[in-house]
Design a protein around this nucleic acid. Sequence first.
DNA 1: CCGAAACCTTCCGTTTACTGGAAAGTGTAG
DNA 2: CTACACTTTCCAGTAAACGGAAGGTTTCGG
Lengths: 132, 132
Amino acid sequence: MNVGQAAEQAGLPVKTVRYYADIGLVEPQGRSEAGYRIYGASEVSKLTFIRRARAFDFSIGDCRELLGLYQDKSRSSRDVKAMALKRLEQIDGKLEELHKLRDELARVAKECRGDNRPDCPILDSFSGQENA
Amino acid sequence: MNVGQAAEQAGLPVKTVRYYADIGLVEPQGRSEAGYRIYGASEVSKLTFIRRARAFDFSIGDCRELLGLYQDKSRSSRDVKAMALKRLEQIDGKLEELHKLRDELARVAKECRGDNRPDCPILDSFSGQENA
DNA sequence: CCGAAACCTTCCGTTTACTGGAAAGTGTAG
DNA sequence: CTACACTTTCCAGTAAACGGAAGGTTTCGG
């Protein structure tokens, strides 16, 4: 199948699939006489795999590593779990940070009357003139 | 004061302060005879302002806009509040997404024994072979 | 069989918000 | 005077693609 179909099956934009081929992440089975990339079910699996891993915020580098584990039938699940737990930790950190951010922004937004007058607690908080 | 001191006071890397000058976000008061950027308290305030806004995930474009409002003494707080609420919405969306992600990753990681055997629910979930 | 539409190719530039480094000039402390 | 810290500009690169141009291919319909 051509790149378009492979992309559709994997749920990725065509450009992205080509990009992944360019960086050697998922190379097509081969090329047609006209130079078209040819993909098979196995490549679609890998692309799908990557789409999902990316949705978990794994970097392309991580994906490369995970794909290696994915294809290595003799890998130990320990390695994979270690990566997953590390990522989980990162996500938790990000979540916490984002939560704090959200709450602070919500707080200052709530304090702002949102009228025609210029005084605005939001901007005050940015400039470090909070009265809290 | 020179760029280094301004950066320190604003809590930003020197490179970043120079970058902000380059893109016309916060330009120095002037230049010394030797061509050194000269900053004053007012610029440091703006830099600090931007650092904080950036911590709220506002883009540079947003910061430019906010800085305009910040400096415009006749602005209405309504405009600022509208921006803040929009950003809040975005953050909430991101939070929700990240939460789902976290939970799913935690779930598959928990199911993974993490031993020397190759079977791994984490990788299975990536390739779409979940049994859930 | 021809022409248009819908594919596909490569290449190049753009994006975001910086960061790093090189080469060279300047200011300062001892 | 010299070492060293600080500054300048410029160039390149990062992540992970996206957008578009110019051109080749395939396929569908008449």
